[in-house]
Amino acid sequence: MLSSILAASLSMGLLAVAFAVLLVWASRRFTVQEDPRVELLANLLPGANCGACGFSGCSGFAKAAVEGKAPADGCRAGGPGVAARVAEVLGVAAPAGVTRQVAHVFCAGTQALAKRTGEYRGLPDCRAAELVSGGGKACTYGCLGFGTCVEACPFDALTMGPEGLPVVDERKCTGCGICTQVCPRGVIQLVDAGRRTFVNCLSPLPGKLVRQVCQAGCIACNICERLCEHDAIHVLGNLATITPELCIACGQCSAKCPTHVIECRREEEAGEALPAGAGQAAS
């Protein structure tokens, strides 16, 4: 009995020591020097692996940032908050002038207001429809409304509204910009969060032609330009263009716009420049 306990303990002990020696040698021999900051950064990032930074997933960005290949504010989904914390970890100055960005749909051509010339019957994808005579919408600058951006959004921040235009949930939007890349017409663009005035049209056609295709297009009538007391809106190339830095969102131009293409949000409606990181916390 005793001998069998002794034999068991001894054999197990010897085997364990042998294996321990092997592992100690291996850990010396195959040691990897890894920068602990990489893991630190990987935990800071949103973790959605959206790829908007241009690296493979969040861990890829973390590695690139530590190696100095990616800027501290490279994570577009994380916004300024993440950028500041990344900068802190990396020991560089916090990037200045970074504001949270959100997607905005620059088209007001709802199903009721934009003329349709044909009925598109193919693949329900804006990128495919765009290649067939413009996809059936008479205006070739407006939203086609097949929801390619909605499907592409990794943060669930886009939904297709009842009137055939996508709606951005600015609390969920992280400004990663993937929707802007899939939109074949560039209708979705990134804007600073908290901006309150928008000209929801991209058509550079003369007013006469815009009128033919859409009731909610900018016809370059110049009324807004004349009304504005702050020199914040100008008609450039047949399209009213707002200078956000000068605009005080008084709402004058929006009220008088004959095609109601200028959107002016009241203060409480405007997506505030949410504290950084709130975007992903909410989702």
Binding site: S4, A7, A8, S11, M12, L15, A16, F19, L22, L23, A26
Partner: peptide, 21 residues
Amino acid sequence: FHLPFLQYVVFILVIATLVQF
């Protein structure tokens, strides 16, 4: 050593070591 009852323990030890390695 008439220790076949140690099979599971020893084999797991072997496998764990190899995996670590």
